[in-house]
Write a protein that binds this DNA or RNA. Structure first.
Lengths: 321, 321
DNA sequence: GCAGTGCCGGACAACGTTGTCAAAGCACTG
DNA sequence: CAGTGCTTTGACAACGTTGTCCGGCACTGC
């Protein structure tokens, strides 16, 4: 900038004014400055600007894994909203590791992101307290923060969705329904199990429940075990997209129970699988918009919108006549 | 930092030393400083540090769309390598828009990212010249840069893969094979068409080729048109993952040609679709590692690794006897 | 007790920008 | 032609850190 200033024969501040489109610069002077900028290939140093102004025009996004279609869709929506506000996105995957989540969040904070959107992996977010107190807004998505942290959250109606699917199965004549969920420590997994259990009532059977992270081996073993029971399940409700896909794979090529899943997935329509669909893009959009409202000064009490989910019947839950 | 210094009763610089783990601080002093840091909830302002040191420990990634599984996988790999080098990732989706690509890249540069990984959407990258000259290394992935820009590139063997699939189909008795590709302006689409055409030789028929971006309507229309020909295709080779999925959807429920696709996709195994698989994670990893080699001082000539692709036969290309 | 040696702590400048404030230039009025 | 008000420009400090350099202090060996 100094070089541009001397090249154009003006003061530093005048260059700054031109670069920022501030009023009060004579058009001829501005042209001279712009010419010098082009000639020297100058571009403003954003780090210095950030240091001076205090706003980074960057938000931090911590998700579980970008490669998971659900979080990829969510990411994309957050990015779009951020772009519309002239913000960039620093993002990182926690891999369901609380320590990594904490590290990412704190690194983002050290870089003075303007705000945070977090899909938490851990249960304790007290490490966020100083940052929140310092005025960095955060929005939790898909899962709530640990106790004592009262921030905005955007959740889906997990229990309701699970109940919806369960009732659908029952209505179609199923009475032995298995549930495959992720680790019970994961909020969504627990909520969905809860919805399943509640909707199933007296039909609920502990032996038809398996809560483990989605690996083909474990899913296959669980299904084998359940199918070997006296009264095997006629339907399986899977607690997230990955489990649905894994279960379908485990059951491929054999006559097994019908599969109904939480989360929609690519080609579910072709495979005719009934699902409870949530809208990851909407979740990301709602969270990002909430964050930007906070950034523009909204200091109301924490909000906790719950997004609806919808049953998409595709036949897989219907018992053959 | 100033507050911490006065709280601990030491000079600013001493705090800096403690924070950076520099030697030459008495352990007792260091403890006092650390206590003050904890008490005040201080965290280093990374922007100021960047301004002073010149390195941001951030790399910029421009892809086409995070929500596309191919780029999501690539992103994840880049992120892993970056994390291993203590770097964060600024990422953005260009949506196949050259102007947006340019904007993202230049914004990243203004923020002084240490390096760039770009899946280019445009054809002209002369805007990158000043940045490259200024010493910001860039690696192009999946598609090469426009003319005159000689940087590292990591590409897949697009033509070879397409030829592989085509020969597979021919070997299984197909002589009327259609090709559905993305816009011909997209490098990979053009290369794959080229491989297809070359491998097909005299069997190539212009009427069985459609190069359009993957929308269900256009794909359906193209297929309908082809299937209405005198000698309709017995197989369709789709030029990328999205087109494969779209074609499968367009053909769902009717007796149509066999579908073989470029790019693997979730559940391709269950659907029994033969594909030419590339490894997005590997592509991302190779690109990121190349970038970090540049960042650690490797100034050798630009490298252009070409990653192999592999045919995964799953039956969909075989003519019924 | 004194010079020499090492270690530790601190003052200061610099990174590149922007906000504040004051001054200079100019046209216009009375 | 002085006075007024507006526009345009510039000098300076500050943002929070780190690199450089220097001074003070304790410790050693005589």
């Amino acid at each position: 900038m100094k070089d541009v200033a001397s090249a154009a024969g003006v003061a530093l501040k005048t260059v700054s004014r031109v670069v920022n489109g501030e009023p009060g610069v004579h058009p001829a002077t501005a042209d001279r400055v712009r010419a010098a900028i082009d000639r020297l290939g100058y571009s403003r140093n954003e780090s210095a600007r950030v240091l001076r102004r205090g706003r980074t025009a960057t938000i931090g996004l911590v998700i579980e894994d970008v490669a998971d279609p659900f979080y990829a869709g969510l990411s994309r929506a957050v990015e779009s909203v951020a772009a519309a506000h002239g913000c960039l996105l620093l993002s990182g995957s926690s891999s369901e590791d609380a320590e990594r989540e904490r590290e990412l969040v704190l690194t983002f904070c050290a870089r003075r992101v303007d705000g945070l959107i977090v899909v938490p992996a851990g249960e304790d977010h007290s490490y966020l307290r100083p940052e929140l107190d310092a005025g960095t807004p955060a929005v939790f998505v898909d899962r709530p923060p640990g106790p004592g942290i009262d921030v905005d959250t955007v959740l889906a109606d997990n229990a309701g969705g699970a109940a919806l699917a369960t009732r659908h199965l029952v209505a179609h004549g199923h009475s032995r329904i298995a549930f495959l969920g992720d680790e019970p420590s994961i909020f969504t997994a627990a909520r969905r199990l809860h919805g399943f259990r509640t909707a199933l009532g007296h039909l609920y059977d502990e032996r038809l429940v398996c809560m483990r992270s989605p690996a083909l081996d474990t899913v296959r073993a669980a299904l084998d075990r359940m199918l070997a029971l006296d009264r095997p399940p006629t339907a399986v409700f899977t607690g997230n997209g990955r489990l649905t896909v894994t279960a379908l794979r485990a059951l491929a090529g054999r006559r097994g129970p019908a599969v109904v899943g939480f989360d929609d997935f690519e080609l579910s329509d072709l495979l005719g699988v009934t699902v409870v669909a949530q809208d990851p893009a909407r979740m990301g959009r709602v969270a990002a918009e909430l964050l930007f409202r906070r950034l523009s000064g909204d200091t109301g009490p924490a909000e906790h919108p719950v997004l609806p989910v919808g049953l998409v019947p595709r036949g897989s839950g219907e018992l053959p006549p």
